[in-house]
Amino acid sequence: MSSLGYVIEQYIMLSGALFTLGCIGFLVRRNVLVQLMSIELMLNSVNLTLVAYNRMHTGDLNGQVFAFFIIAVAAAEVAVGLAIVLAFYRLKSSVQSDEADQLRH
């Protein structure tokens, strides 16, 4: 196992595991805050994949730049998302996503 950390497959699997965890978190948890965090997890796992693949192609840095933009977008998303959480909390006095079922009506 001397290749630990130097082959792409391990990064991919790690990233897959992180993504799955994020996915499960988003699906299972009803707390909007935790759901947002789960989304962050998923984004991070994607970043990891991008950077890992970029490591294979040393000629350019597009993967890393892309990851950089993803981080920027994630930051923006969290800002807006948390604002929505606050507004939602004001409306329903709760941060449970079960309460957010207005779409149905």
Partner: peptide
């Protein structure tokens, strides 16, 4: 892990932003 993957800048950004 970013550091492992030769992405020093990203590692820093990751820490700073996240």
């Amino acid at each position: 892990l970013f550091l492992m993957l030769n992405a020093q800048f990203l590692a820093a950004i990751q820490l700073i932003v996240y």
